[in-house]
Design a protein around this nucleic acid. Structure first.
Lengths: 151, 151
DNA sequence: CTTGATTCGTTAGCCTTCCTAATTACATTA
DNA sequence: TAATGTAATTAGGAAGGCTAACGAATCAAG
């Protein structure tokens, strides 16, 4: 970085990194999607179901917020998951407008299986990395999670 | 790594990491997409154009492979970019079937501008990280790029 | 040289996922 | 009790991905 434009370059570093992470995410998702899901769970369905399984029951609106989509988008996802017997709706005692969602026992099994299938080829590639690189990606996953969550 | 248990655990670690990277990518993209693009360049368009700008001219098939989409998908993207005057087609001298694609001068300018807009909020968050975390993400971007490329 | 197989890109048509706007049902507050 | 606000759904549309089928060009055998 010995260019005359050192200041502009420095300011661009964050943007440049953001751009690279953006591209990497696009490519990672496209690769994973191709792996094709025998269990019939697409990435958005899998991701939403994960929230219910690992973080516990949520209302539809909370789930939409966690997944960073609008409620109407989540409505459809939930309808599909419900049809597959992976999610159950419960009435909220205090407020009958809200839909409380809970993953079924079957969902836990399906989730484990289909997650394995979906990310298998990526996981295979990860196994070729040395410990330091794995640690880097572990830490990066944490950081990205924190960065993309909230506000 | 000698016992079946250790091996299974090790395999689970890779899958677990793959799953976390998968989720992080979904959330990152959903966040970035919301930022909305004043220049009218969507993420897939921006990403494809980046390849042509930074890696030089490519055939349509090569570009599709680099972007991990099928040729018909890339055909549409290129048609849009062409209509915007961001990409030019050239005939290949040796093989008249192939379409050689080149980013225009205008594309370079537009790319810089719209990339900034698109990733701005992510970049702002990245600026809050310390140097070590930034370095981690830089390295992770490299690793992910390598992992999702090829084969 | 001719014929058949292959390859590059396009067209056609479908599916999924996301969105905004409008609507319905319930809750809250003035 | 009337007005306002909020949770979820419905309706409708845009974008981006896919496969299948096709035309044009190339390559490989004979």
């Amino acid at each position: 970085m010995t260019t005359p434009d050192a200041r502009a370059t420095e300011e661009d570093l964050a943007e440049r990194l953001a751009d690279r992470l953006h591209s990497a995410s696009i490519h990672l998702l496209r690769r994973v999607r191709r792996q094709d899901d025998a269990a019939g769970l697409s990435a958005p369905h899998l991701s939403a179901l994960s929230v219910l399984v690992f973080a516990g029951p949520r209302t539809l609106g909370e789930l939409a917020a966690a997944e960073q989509v609008r409620p109407p988008s989540m409505t459809r996802v939930v309808q599909n998951l419900e049809r597959e017997g992976l999610v159950e709706r419960e009435a909220d005692a205090a407020d009958r407008r809200v839909v409380r969602l809970r993953a079924t026992e079957r969902a836990r099994r399906i989730l484990e299986e289909s997650r394995g299938r979906r990310v298998r080829s990526l996981a295979a590639r990860l196994r070729t990395l040395d410990d330091a690189d794995v640690a880097t990606l572990e830490r990066a996953a944490d950081l990205l999670d924190a960065l993309t969550r909230g506000e």
